[in-house]
């Protein structure tokens, strides 16, 4: 079993405090939804956890199975089992997804020769055109294709904990369903994935059934509860909580 434990995390961007004491624990097999209005700091949390340059942690801790994530460079956080499905997946001209995943497998002591076969299987499972696998990373892909591409990489890399940053944006209903089903499958496998799904719509959560829902505002978690919180948010909005 794996456990992402975030305690009283504070972070700034260009000197401005954005995270103001985030505390949460995500365990294997659990799906947590982190909901909040735009600009509340949800994406900052995902970037701070993954170590994107430009974010400074000023207090608190984040560990994955007792490994201090904040002390590691980004690629070692990934090797420790953390995955970030990016809100806006970056284009990397001339570099194929296969090259990336093979390099990641090599760095984590896995056999890179397994990558092409695994990619083909996963592409078929989520309805991602295999032809896209030979394209440069995210280049000339639509928003929806990019999100399928993120899901495919997640499935092949088999992380312990995945942060999904607005995975639903850009996806049509069918794609959303295919992607959500693949992630749900990962949460119930032999080494179940723990998920922190960041979103400001309930749409994703109708497909990806959360165990815990957190309401995020002003840089911290304001309220946590069960799935019923999604319906209340839907009815009342974020205004009364922010």
């Amino acid at each position: 079993m794996s456990e992402l434990v975030v305690i009283d995390l504070h972070a700034t961007v260009a000197g401005t405090p954005i995270l103001k004491g985030v505390t949460l624990t995500v365990r294997s097999g659990e799906v947590h939804a982190l909901m909040g209005r735009n600009g509340s700091g949800k994406s900052t949390l995902s970037n701070v956890l993954m170590g994107r340059p430009g974010y400074e942690v000023t207090a608190g801790s984040a560990t994955l199975d007792d490994v201090d994530l904040l002390a590691l460079p980004t690629w070692e956080r990934a090797r420790a089992g953390l995955f970030l499905a990016a809100q806006y997946p970056t284009e990397v001209p001339g570099v194929q997804v296969t090259d990336v995943l093979e390099a990641a497998f090599t760095a984590s002591g896995r056999d890179p020769a397994l990558v092409p076969g695994r990619m083909a299987e996963e592409a078929d499972a989520i309805g991602f055109d295999r032809a896209f696998l030979r394209r440069a990373v995210n280049v000339d892909l639509s928003g929806g294709e990019r999100k399928r591409n993120e899901t495919l990489q997640l499935a092949v890399l088999e992380p312990r904990i995945a942060v999904l940053d607005e995975l639903d944006s850009g996806l049509d209903v069918d794609a959303l369903r295919a992607v959500a089903r693949r992630i749900e499958l990962a949460t119930s496998g032999p080494q179940p994935l723990g998920v922190l799904a960041i979103t400001h719509y309930s749409r994703l959560l109708q497909e990806l059934h959360p165990d815990v829902v957190h309401v995020f505002g002003d840089g911290r978690i304001l309220e946590s509860g069960g799935p019923e919180l999604v319906d209340r948010l839907e009815a009342e909005g974020y205004a009364s909580r922010a």
Binding site: M50, G51, R52, P53, P73, T74, W75, R77, A78, R79, F83, L84, A86, P89, T90, E91, V92, V95, V100, L101, A103, A104, A107, S108, V137, Q153, L157
Partner: peptide, 13 residues
């Protein structure tokens, strides 16, 4: 951004 994206997949810097 490109470097971060690849690193976030577990590719050494």
């Amino acid at each position: 951004d490109q470097r971060f994206y690849l690193e976030s997949r577990g590719v050494p810097a």
